[in-house]
Design a protein around this nucleic acid. Sequence first.
DNA 1: CTGAAAGCGCTAACAA
DNA 2: TTGTTAGCGCTTTCAG
Lengths: 346, 346
Amino acid sequence: MIEDEKLEIRPKAPRAVRTLTDLANIAGVSAGTVSRALAGNSLVNTKTRDRIQALAREYGFQPNQMASKLRRQKTGVIGVIIPLGHDRRQQISDSFFMTLLGHLADELTEKGYDLMLRRVVPERDEDWLDRFIGSGMIDGVIVIGQSNQFERIEEVADGYLPMVVWGNHQEGQRHCVVGADNRLGGRLATERLIAAGATRIAFLGDTAPFEFAARFAGAQDVASRLGASLRAVSTHLSPEQTRKEIAGFLSRHHTEIDGIFAASDSIAFAAMQELRRLRIAVPDAIKLVGFDDLPIASQTIPPLTTIHQDIMAGAQGLVELLLRRLKGEATESLVLPPRLVVRGTA
Amino acid sequence: MIEDEKLEIRPKAPRAVRTLTDLANIAGVSAGTVSRALAGNSLVNTKTRDRIQALAREYGFQPNQMASKLRRQKTGVIGVIIPLGHDRRQQISDSFFMTLLGHLADELTEKGYDLMLRRVVPERDEDWLDRFIGSGMIDGVIVIGQSNQFERIEEVADGYLPMVVWGNHQEGQRHCVVGADNRLGGRLATERLIAAGATRIAFLGDTAPFEFAARFAGAQDVASRLGASLRAVSTHLSPEQTRKEIAGFLSRHHTEIDGIFAASDSIAFAAMQELRRLRIAVPDAIKLVGFDDLPIASQTIPPLTTIHQDIMAGAQGLVELLLRRLKGEATESLVLPPRLVVRGTA
DNA sequence: CTGAAAGCGCTAACAA
DNA sequence: TTGTTAGCGCTTTCAG
C-alpha cells in the first residue's frame, strides 16, 4: 500500500505546483481563496493570506498570466509598434527612437505594465495597426513615429481610444500625439544658421515624414522672413543610401551653400564626415545645425550645434497620456518645446 | 413586442462580432469550424474556409489571443530581458544593446514570434528571471547581457531549457550563450596598441561584468607576453559617473600612459573627448582602441580604431539557438569572432 | 471570511 | 467534412 502511494505520488513531484488548485490542495483551502490571497485581497483572513503567500514562495508558484488575462479581460501589456514606412531598414532617427524605447520600457515597468514590441513594414501589411490592436494581447498601443502612415493612424484613432503616437502634431488631427514642436525647432535651427552668417542654406533629409516636413517648414518660415535662400535636398531609403545622396550633393554643390540644416543628428554626422572628406571647414565655410541632440552630438569635433528634444519627458508624456486614455479620458496632444543648443558647428 | 426586441438587440450591435461563436452564427456553422477555417486547417472544406475567411475580413474579426494561448499552452511570444545589474541606468554598451534589440525584433518577427521586452534591476528583485519565465506569458527568453548575474542565470539554466543569453562564454558554464570572443578581442586591441607603439596601457571600463573582464584578461595576455605595462581603471555606475571617473584619471595620470584600451566604444568616445579637452593628441601622444564598432565609430575625428562585433549575426544566432531549444534540443554556445578595424586612433 | 460554480474565448479530441 | 464537448487556469459573483 505504501509502495503504491509512492508510485502515485512520484510522477507528480517533478512538475511541482503549477496551478492555483495545486496550491489550494497543499494549503487545504479552495482555489478561490488562494486566488484572493495571492492578489492581496483584503477579504481574506490575514493569517491564511500570509500562509498561502509563504507557500507560494516556497513552491515557486506563479499564477498563469494567460488564464488570468483571459478571465479579467485585460492584459497589463502595452504594445509599442514602430512602423518602418518610408524606409526599409531603420530610418534616420533610429538611434533616437531606440533611446525613446528604452525610456518607455522603464516608464511602463514602473507603472506595472509590460511592453510588447513590434516593428512592421506597413507596405507589406496594410492592417499592421489594426492587427496589433485587435490581437487581444495588449490593452493599449504606443506608435513610435508616424512614418508615412498618418492617414492610417487617423482612421484607427477614430475607433480606438487607448492609442498615443510619437510624432508631429498637425492642425486638426484626430489622434493623440506627443512630440516636439518640429516647426519651431526648424525655425530655431535656421535662425541660428543665419545668425551665424549663413545666407544660402540647404535642408538635408527626407521631407516625406511629417516630422521632417515640419522641420523644413519651420526653416522656410525663417528663411523667407530673413531673406536667406533655402533648398531641400531630400534623401531616401537606407542610411547608406542617405549617406551617398548627401555625399553626391555636397561634392557637386557645396560651393553654392554656406549653411546646412540637417533633419536629424544622424544626418548631420554624415554631412560632417563628408565635409571633412572634402576639406570644407565647419563652421567657417559651412555652418551646420542638427536635430535631436543625441548624446554623441556633444562629442563630435567640433561638437554639433543642434536642437534638443527631451526624450525622457517624451516617454513620460506618452505613458501618462496612454494611461489616462486607458481610463476612458480623451486627452489632448502634448507638444514639447525644442531647445537650441549652440555648440561648435554654427 | 417589436420594440422590446429592438431594445434587446441594440446594445449588442455596436460591439460587432467579437468571438468565434459570433462569426459562427453569422456563417451558419459551428465555432469549431470557424476555428479550423481561420487556422487554415486542411480538414475543412475549401469553400467554407474561403467563405469564413472572407466573413472574418469583412467583420474585422480577430480571434482572441489570450484564449488561444491559454488553450494551446503556448504563447508565440519570446521574452527579451535586459538586466541592469551593476548599474542603475543603462550601462555603457547601451547603444550596442539597443541595436541588438532592433535586430532581434526583426529576426523574431520573421520567425513568427512576438517580443516582450522587460528591463529589470536585479538588486531590487532577486527573482527577476524566474518571475519572467514563470509568468506564463512567454515561450522562451533571451537575456541581453549577463551583467553581474552570471550565477543567477546559471541556476535558472539548470531547470529551464528555452533560454539563450547574450554575453561572454566562460569555460564550463551551463547556460547557452551567444557573444563575441571577448578575450580574443581584448588581445587584438592590445596587440594593435603595442604595434602602434604603446608600451604603457590603461584599460578603461568596469571590470565586474564578465564581458569586460574577458576583454581585460585578453589585454593582460598580450601585455605580459609583449612586455607592456597594463593597468585597469575601473569605472562605475552611470554614464555620467563613468565620464567623471575617466576625466579624473586622465587629468591626473595621462603622462603615465601612452595607450588606452576602452572596454566599449562609448567609453572610448568619452575618453577622446576628455583627451581633446586636455589637448592631448590622439594617436600621437596616446593611442586609443575601442570595442563594439558602433556606426558612429567611423565618424569621430579621428575615426576610432576598434574591435568589430557583428550585431546582426549575433541576433540571428540568438534567435536560431532559441528556436532549436524550443524544440527540445540542447544547443552549444555560439562564440563569434571579433575583428580589428584599424582607423585613425591607433 | 471561505467554498462552490460559472465562465473568459478558444482549440482539439471524439463523434457523427 | 463538420458539430459537439470538454476543458486550458484563473477570477469573481453568489451562497453560506
